[in-house]
Design a binder for these strands. Structure first.
Ligand SMILES: [Mn+2]
Ligand SMILES: [Mn+2]
Ligand SMILES: [Mn+2]
Ligand SMILES: [Mn+2]
Lengths: 121, 121
DNA sequence: GAAACAACTTAGCCCGTGCTAAGTTTCGAG
DNA sequence: CTCGAAACTTAGCACGGGCTAAGTTGTTTC
């Protein structure tokens, strides 16, 4: 959850300069109330900073998480495409899978995309 | 959640003949209270049948889900091993990843394990 | 058969994530 | 400058999934 939020916030900032709650409402297709609640939790956890009616910014910690999450998401998605999954499915599945992929598995995916499948021993 | 539960119940039954709540308490490392609650929900959803102080059995629907989940879990785990991930990590990561893998992605994994990586176009 | 122990249930609590409904703030037109 | 619409907050609700504490049922063992 936190990962998807900071990723979406970073995306909005990089696209529009700022991130407003309404961007997240659209992105996640939830209500303003839900976004408001979630943002409070993210702020409590030191990932974002915001004030009532003001745009949302990422803390250093939030930026770090966003970068890692974005990278992981993209590697997983690309990997799925690489093993022959359709665009649509790769996009859908990577949205969930990304949150369970360890650093080791991520490295394995990158290795495979570069060097192909390891010897069948 | 449901998938992991029916999978664990099927496993207990195939190993001990029956599944008791205490098996799930041990398997998931949660309290009896939690298992009791969860089983109620599974029963409400038509996946299991049980009566107070009695063993837990799977409905047809529950068995179907268990079989699919078990297969998916195993394919994902084997696939991770196949791309060079360690036993420990493959076991850990597959526990989460399995729940986000569509049929299409599952087929792609099986294909890759059989025929290797698709042509780089 | 009574006592002790294991298995289980039930009540009551917390938090996360979602909602609706209602009110507040901000901002752009007119 | 005012008003309406868009953005946002707040309160109150529900459910999933976790807990502790306390009580109940079942089973073994003496
Ligand atoms: Mn993501
Ligand atoms: Mn995601
Ligand atoms: Mn599983
Ligand atoms: Mn699992």
């Amino acid at each position: 959850m936190a990962e998807d939020y900071v990723e979406a916030i970073a995306e909005a900032i990089s696209e529009n300069g700022i991130c407003r709650a309404v961007d997240l409402v659209r992105h996640f297709d939830v209500t303003h109330a839900t976004v408001s609640n979630t943002i409070s939790r993210l702020q409590r956890d030191g990932l974002v900073v915001t004030e009532p009616y003001q745009p949302i910014t990422l803390t250093a910690k939030g930026k770090r998480m966003a970068t890692k999450a974005r990278n992981r998401h993209e590697v997983v998605r690309t990997f799925l495409l690489r093993i022959g999954v359709s665009e649509t499915t790769a996009t859908e599945d990577s949205e969930g899978i990304e949150h369970h992929v360890s650093d080791e598995t991520l490295r394995a995916m990158k290795r495979v995309m570069k060097d192909g499948i390891p010897a069948s021993d």
